[in-house]
């Protein structure tokens, strides 16, 4: 076991798959010699050569379209979109094309592509570098959207994503890249896609979260415990498709749920999760399902960022509301 940050675990996952499968290619803007602007691909070009780990011209749509072409010739591309706010430049290649290719071809042309990208707020970036746009991707049938919350999951989920024969949007929360270390096995292992995990068991309320909000939810749960409220925390890990089985099992036990996301209230996936809970478990509910989310403005300018982003206090507030309903 080694102590790794999430970004080291991500690099390690790519290294593992570059070694395992000669069809794996890693590329993007500044990904080669520079090792990526966050150093996610540090050392990979040196280790695997320019043919397999390389820089591309600066054009996201080109990167997306090229990935499809490489997949059509049997490669397993792992392109990087430098910041997920740049996804608008590559929306057609992702949503209009790679998500639909297997379907369009009557099941004959799989797209084993993993699009990696940093996202999420709280790190004082310029505009369009910090949005939570997972909802846009989750609304596109044909894609999987995976968001790890810790180094161990990041490595196992990324390996599973790269091995998947369907396209995966793999979103890496920038605030988690280097915020803490975890025990991460040096050998290869996978974490199953489409499966949530219970991070903390509880009996009074279910907190459903993903990405950085898993940590805010855990912190909120600790505070709630002091007030005598026992919160269960679920980390979705894959946000499309959502593992409703795990959520419903928990809600049927706790009878209350709060869905937590960093994205704006009208974006993200919290609304879909809340809707599914009431469809499937309304008779188990003691209170409405509430959502913790950012307000429906464009992502906050940095000076208002800390107030704009949801945090453990906003979660505690909503939990109190469902407890006192």
């Amino acid at each position: 076991m080694a102590q790794m940050t999430m970004i080291q675990a991500i690099t390690d996952a790519m290294r593992t798959e570059l070694k395992n499968d000669e069809n794996v290619l890693v590329y993007g803007e500044d990904v080669g010699q520079n090792g990526g602007v966050f150093r996610a691909t540090e050392g990979l070009q040196k280790e695997f050569g320019e043919d397999r780990v390389f820089d591309t011209p600066l054009a996201e749509s080109g990167i997306g379209g090229m990935s499809i072409g490489l997949a059509l010739t049997g490669f397993r591309p792992v392109p990087e979109i430098q910041f997920f706010g740049f996804v608008f430049e590559v929306m057609d290649a992702i949503s209009g094309q790679m998500a639909r290719y297997r379907y369009r071809s009557g099941g004959t042309r799989p797209m084993p592509i993993t699009v990696r990208s940093p996202f999420g707020g709280g790190v004082h970036t310029p505009e369009l570098h910090a949005d939570s746009l997972e909802g846009l991707m989750a609304q596109q049938p044909g894609l999987r959207v995976v968001i790890p919350s810790n180094p161990y999951d990041a490595k196992g989920l990324l390996i599973s994503s790269i091995r998947s024969n369907d396209p995966v949007i793999f979103l890496e929360h920038m605030k988690l890249y280097r915020s803490f270390r975890d025990e991460v096995p040096e050998e290869e292992y996978t974490v199953e896609l489409d499966k949530a995990t219970v991070k903390r068991e509880g009996t009074d309320v279910t907190l459903v979260a993903y990405g950085a909000m898993v940590h805010s939810s855990l912190k909120a749960a600790e505070e709630l415990e002091k007030e005598g409220i026992s919160a269960e925390v679920i980390d979705l890990r894959t946000v499309s498709p959502v593992d409703y089985e795990t959520i419903l099992e928990s809600v049927k036990k706790t009878n209350r749920a709060v869905v937590v996301q960093e994205a704006q209230k009208s974006a993200g996936i919290a609304s879909a999760v809340a809707a599914e809970i009431q469809e499937k478990a309304i008779l188990h509910l003691e209170a409405p399902v509430l959502r913790v989310a950012a307000p429906d403005t464009v992502y906050a300018f940095t000076q208002a960022e800390e107030v704009w982003l949801p945090n453990h206090n906003s979660i505690v507030e909503k939990v109190n509301a469902v407890m006192n309903f």
């Binding site: 749509s61 080109g62 997306g64 379209g65 090229m66 990935s67 499809i68 072409g69 490489l70 997949a71 059509l72 010739t73 290649a93 094309q97």
Partner: peptide, 8 residues
Amino acid sequence: TQAAGVGL
């Protein structure tokens, strides 16, 4: 762009 990828 896809054709460029196939050609590559």
